[in-house]
């Protein structure tokens, strides 16, 4: 059997997720409603059914035309670096969203930008100024000119 590739995995995720949502729809939503309305679950059920059918087609297609597996991508040195960098940026973004709830926006934003600069291996002084500059400009634009309350903690 051929090795599972990215499209197979995504197809499987779609298939399982649609199955779970269909189960939730059928157990929590009303089947019918008064006065001819087909009810809340009609559309979710139709959509889940269509997604499951298309997921099966995608899985079959993925075995016919295999794309590169993620493990294969990681074997390449440059690609591995990019992958680690992307994961770090994503973690930094998640950290920023958590910090934003607990500390002032200016501080959270500065930390987020500074960590990004570090991930991109920028020089320390540049990182400090760039992070402060971008955070400051965006704060002035949104919080002062457009009256968006950015401090939500």
């Amino acid at each position: 059997m051929k090795k599972a590739n990215g499209n197979t995995v995504i197809g499987l995720i779609f298939l399982i997720a649609a199955g779970i949502i269909m189960y939730i729809a059928n157990t929590t939503l009303k089947a019918t409603a008064p006065a001819g309305d087909p009810g809340s679950r009609l559309f979710p059920n139709l959509a889940c059914g269509a997604i499951m059918l298309l997921a099966v087609i995608i899985i079959i297609q993925s075995f016919k035309k295999p794309s590169k597996a993620f493990a294969g991508i990681l074997a390449d040195g440059d690609r591995r670096q990019s992958c680690i960098r992307t994961l770090l940026i994503l973690t930094d973004l998640a950290l920023f969203l958590v910090l934003w709830n607990f500390i002032p926006f200016l501080a959270a934003g500065f930390i987020f930008m500074f960590l990004q600069c570090m991930i991109f291996r920028e020089k320390l002084l540049f990182s400090v100024f760039y992070s402060a500059g971008v955070t400051g400009v965006l704060y002035v634009m949104f919080a002062i000119f457009l009256k968006v309350r950015l401090n939500i903690y």
């Binding site: 973004l93 934003g109 987020f112 930008m113 990004q116 971008v134 955070t135 965006l138 949104f142 950015l150």
Partner: peptide, 10 residues
């Protein structure tokens, strides 16, 4: 890229 990620969040 760095600035856009922040603009998107705000």
């Amino acid at each position: 890229q760095m600035a856009v990620l922040m603009i998107c969040s705000i």
